[in-house]
């Protein structure tokens, strides 16, 4: 076995000019308070869309300009909750049609939320089987590239 312990040494602490995370991504220009208000308004809009069983409209509402970056944790939580109500109430047979109707941006954002949900088992209304069902259908439509973008994108949701 080759020596690998040296890989775990944090050499960055000796570097005055170290690259910070925030340098890698442009911050969300919106004000955190406004982002939170937006998220709450969307929650209401999604409820009314769901009562008309307009799933695609509801998904588009919640995924468009979703909150990202630091300082907007509460808005992210509200958005995740809103999204979960959509995911949990959609019938399995309708999922592929809905996903095909999403723009590529929104497909990428949806994938981010699916992974966020899977990373928080037992939180709120998260159901692993529902998330995996959506994940399977989304991967069939958007491909592995969509998963790769979820992993690389620093604009975390």
């Amino acid at each position: 076995m080759a020596e690998t312990a040296f890989r775990k040494i944090d050499i960055d602490i000796y570097d005055e000019d170290v690259l910070q995370d925030e340098e890698l991504v442009d911050a969300d220009p919106r004000d955190p308070v406004q982002v939170l208000n937006d998220a709450k308004q969307r929650q209401a809009a999604v409820r009314s869309a769901l009562s008309r069983s307009d799933i695609l409209g509801a998904l588009n509402t919640v995924l468009e300009n979703a909150p990202y970056g630091p300082n907007v944790e509460e808005a992210k939580t509200v958005t995740l909750q809103t999204l979960l109500t959509i995911l949990n109430t959609t019938k399995a047979a309708e999922i592929p049609g809905v996903i095909k109707g999403l723009s590529q941006d929104n497909q990428d954002t949806l994938m981010k939320y699916l992974y966020k949900g899977m990373a928080m088992p037992g939180w709120g209304d998260i159901s692993g089987s529902v998330l995996l069902g959506w994940h399977e259908k989304l991967t069939e439509v958007a491909g592995t590239g969509c998963i790769v973008r979820t992993m690389t994108d620093r604009r975390t949701v």
């Binding site: 990428d108 491909g143 592995t144 590239g145 790769v148």
Partner: peptide
């Protein structure tokens, strides 16, 4: 412009 055309592919990078 600058004009940037981006193609996001569905397969690996």
């Amino acid at each position: 412009g600058p004009t940037i055309c981006t193609i996001r592919i569905s397969s690996l990078p």
